[in-house]
């Protein structure tokens, strides 16, 4: 597994652990109430598990396993850029309620996430090819 995939997949595992922990707290609270403020974790629970875990794992495994050009994986800088943009975006979106919604952090975070997807698609596109091409 290449170094960047290790970063992607281990970061995804951290988000899985965080997302499941938030989910566990909210579900416990639903059954045996602890504190109503726990419902504020719902957006982070969704963001961490959909983008932080599932999407990031898909990127990491795709970078590892998609066809290569002999031994090279194409434009690796774009894939690193996608990693940085995706994680910056996830944290901006997640922290938006605490940073102040009017400042536009959440919107900025969504833009960074979209740019991450574009960067990864640009990296992966040439690797989707027939054998030997």
């Amino acid at each position: 597994m290449p170094g960047l995939s290790v970063w992607y997949v281990r970061t995804a595992l951290v988000y899985l652990a965080l997302g499941l922990t938030f989910g566990m707290l909210m579900l416990w609270h639903k059954g045996m109430p602890i504190h109503p403020a726990l419902w504020a974790l719902l957006p982070a629970h969704i963001e961490f598990l959909l983008l932080g875990w599932t999407l990031q794992l898909a990127f990491g495994v795709a970078f590892w396993i998609l066809p290569r050009f002999r031994t090279k994986r194409g434009n690796v800088r774009l894939a690193w850029l996608a990693y940085a943009l995706l994680n910056a975006g996830i944290w901006l979106v997640t922290l938006d309620p605490w940073l102040g919604r009017l400042a536009g952090w959440g919107w900025t975070g969504r833009v960074l996430e979209a740019l991450a997807v574009i960067a990864f698609a640009l990296h992966a596109w040439p690797r989707i090819k027939p054998p030997g091409a």
Partner: peptide, 19 residues
């Protein structure tokens, strides 16, 4: 309610075991 709390802990432990 307690069944839900128990299910929360069981799922969390399962996820952590995988991680």
């Amino acid at each position: 309610g307690w069944a839900l709390a128990l299910s929360a802990v069981l799922q969390w432990l399962g996820g952590m075991a995988f991680v």
